[in-house]
Design a protein around this nucleic acid. Structure first.
Lengths: 104, 104
DNA sequence: GGTTGACGCCTAGCGACGCTAGGTATAGGC
DNA sequence: GCCTATACCTAGCGTCGCTAGGCGTCAACC
């Protein structure tokens, strides 16, 4: 999996994971790995800044929680985030169809 | 179509077009537009540097031709380019499947 | 008691690359 | 004469995933 392939698609992937269920950063990483069958084993340096970007853009909101003495920042999708996720899914379908038509 | 989405995928797309038939830069742009049903309407500033990158990497070779007083640089895929195209197609399948599993 | 590993967070700086915006030049139509 | 399509080029910008480092908690093992 080349790193460049992911560019521009990560936001949608994260929104999809958090939309399914509110999650903290580490859990997002694990869930991306799980859902993708191991294809997306993303380093923290990729996911944390992405989460911050999404929150700064108003697509996610976060709050601190505590679990077993460990602090976690739990993210939820906002209404705007849900809208954006819909757009992203549509865009993905258009993009992937276009790629397949060219690659075929 | 967000620009970032294309990153990391363009090389494969160009290799696919040129592998089907040797082509000059402008024709590659037109063919990408045609095959993708208009989804990939890429500016020259995107495609020309990509062609140069691919040639520098030994995946394409080029030669000058003339048609109606206009000079054209015609590109062909090398053996390495054809191998790389095969890898790219495989990678695309893995990547798109993974994205769909997460996005679902 | 020390070490290792999983958990859990953060960020400065790098590298890659698509795009903008500008340039050059020829051919044909109005 | 001017515009459009064809045909090429590139300096510089912005974005973003990643590297590489940092901080801290907890459980398990020796």
């Amino acid at each position: 999996m080349h790193a460049e392939e992911l560019k521009g698609h990560l936001d949608g992937l994260i929104l999809a994971v958090v939309a399914a269920e509110p999650a903290h950063g580490y859990a997002v990483i694990e869930e991306l790995k799980r859902r993708s069958g191991g294809a997306f084993a993303l380093p923290e340096g990729t996911v944390y800044p992405a989460l911050h970007r999404l929150e700064a853009a108003g697509l996610l909101s976060s709050s601190w929680a505590s679990a077993g003495g460990r602090r976690r920042r739990v993210y939820r999708v906002t209404a705007g985030g849900r809208r954006r996720l819909g757009e992203r899914r549509r865009e993905w379908r258009l993009f992937s169809r276009a790629v397949e038509q060219v690659l075929a």
